[in-house]
């Protein structure tokens, strides 16, 4: 199916007007607000950002069945994706996840949930899992890719291994959503839970697209490079 997707002539402001979730994405490229009527192309050339990478990410975040063809994929700078992913990891670990968790701890306190401490320890366990997950990418996967780009990919590691080991850190968030929506005591009224839930939904959505970017784009690109090198 052909549909309208963002292009280099789309006005920067329209990205956000169409999909407000991109408010989280643009800072990872170092883009702030105040675009006036500038187009994607203009802003990218001012900030020295790859137009194709920005468009790719925005399209993936906005259109559920968007999938780039291989010629489009070839234009994506791999270093650029890695920087983008590193920036998002930092934001997830330092700001967004603590926010989600703080909200839940606060909910437990405000509603005086019986056995609420088990929710707290669930969150803590999730935090540790996520830290380990990102750490593996930062310390093993990204350095391998950088080596490969530099022409020294002889460590024996292959991107397939990453594909196999790419653990799912969305499941715990989904569990939290279900527990909060279905199984909290009635004292936890909807107005007390709403912000917690909305934040959870947003974070889960972003993580899901983030994983998609790693699984579908980064891995296929690196596989192409691995093949070229052989």
């Amino acid at each position: 199916m052909k549909y309208v997707i963002f292009s280099e002539n789309t006005r920067m402001a329209d990205l956000i007007l169409v999909n407000s979730r991109l408010l989280y994405v643009l800072p990872y490229f170092g883009i702030g607000l105040g675009f006036g009527e500038k187009t994607v192309k203009q802003v990218c050339s001012e900030k020295k950002i790859s137009v194709s990478l920005l468009l790719l990410v925005c399209n993936i975040y906005t259109f559920d069945d968007y999938s780039p063809d291989s010629s489009c994929l070839r234009q994506i700078p791999v270093e650029g994706i890695i920087v983008y992913l590193q920036n998002s990891h930092k934001d997830y670990l330092e700001i967004r996840m603590p926010q989600v968790i703080d909200n839940i701890l606060n909910l437990v306190k405000v509603c005086r949930i019986k056995n609420g401490n088990i929710l707290n320890s669930f969150c803590e366990k999730y935090r540790q899992e996520a830290i380990a997950h990102f750490k593996y990418e930062e310390e093993t996967v990204f350095p391998y890719i950088m080596q490969l780009l530099g022409g020294t990919g002889g460590s024996g590691y292959k991107i397939r291994e990453y594909e196999r080991n790419h653990s799912d850190i969305d499941a715990a968030l989904e569990d939290l959503k279900n527990i909060i929506i279905k199984y909290l005591p009635e004292e936890c009224t909807i107005d007390k839970c709403r912000d917690v839930l909305l934040e959870l939904f947003m974070f889960e959505y972003d993580l899901c697209k983030h994983t998609l970017l790693e699984d579908k784009i980064l891995i296929s690109l690196v596989e192409l490079i691995e093949k070229d090198g052989q």
Partner: peptide, 22 residues
């Protein structure tokens, strides 16, 4: 039925629904 996938999530379900005590 529950929408919960992880073991720790199921444990919370079990406790909140009084199937086990903590």
């Amino acid at each position: 039925k529950t929408g919960i996938k992880t073991v720790s999530g199921l444990t919370i379900y079990a406790i909140f629904n009084n199937l086990v005590s903590q």
